[in-house]
């Protein structure tokens, strides 16, 4: 478990601010204990200080993961969020998209959200904004990036892409072996 370097921390926070904006502070500044980000084999884990100290007693070779995996750094040093981060992103996300029950399955199979499947969208969502995608019953099922702003959505044709798929909970099954 390594401490993230300055540039990697920056990349991580920049990515997180795309989805949850100023709420990133809440991930660090928690009343219930200190939480931090640690890196292991290019994967970033969000872990409480208490748990980290327990994890440090394990020999590094034997430790596979500790805490919650937020994502990984690619070989070109870009940060990619994983679906496992959804539990921390979903409650803080200011911009959301709700998909109709008929389009849920399509999204969970890794497809983009199209206009016909769009149930609701947060007012004033800009273009290329990280959004959390919910079902109509407010259960988060993934996240993505908007392809159109809210105003543009109104005039889009039914097959136009509204949000690009980035991660969905179907990945827990589809890419079980590569997630952690």
């Amino acid at each position: 478990m390594k401490v993230l370097s300055e540039e990697r921390t920056r990349a991580l926070f920049e990515k997180l601010t795309k989805y949850i904006g100023v709420n990133v502070k809440l991930l660090i500044d928690r009343p219930d204990g200190t939480y931090c980000f640690r890196e292991k084999k290019d994967r970033v884990y969000y872990i409480s200080e208490r748990l980290l100290q327990l994890a440090q007693t394990v020999k590094p070779d034997h430790l596979i993961s500790a805490g919650t995996c937020f994502g990984k750094f690619t070989k070109t040093n870009k940060f990619r969020l994983h679906i496992t981060a959804l539990t921390y992103i979903a409650p803080y996300a200011p911009y959301k998209i709700w998909v109709k029950p008929s389009a849920e399955q399509q999204f969970l199979y890794g497809n983009h959200v199209i206009k016909s499947g769009l149930g609701r969208i947060t007012e004033n969502t800009p273009k290329h904004q990280g959004v959390v995608i919910n079902t109509m019953s407010d259960i988060p099922i993934g996240f993505g990036v908007t392809a159109r702003s809210t105003t543009e959505c109104r005039h889009a044709d039914p097959l136009a892409t509204i949000a690009f798929h980035q991660a969905d909970i179907g990945e827990y099954i589809r890419s079980e072996d590569t997630l952690v």
Partner: peptide, 22 residues
């Protein structure tokens, strides 16, 4: 190798970095 910062210092560093980004 950078020395491992104390939890408090690390938290402060992270918050400063977030402020810079925001």
């Amino acid at each position: 190798k950078a020395p491992i910062p104390t939890p408090q210092a690390e938290k402060q560093n992270n918050l400063n970095l977030i402020d810079k980004i925001l």
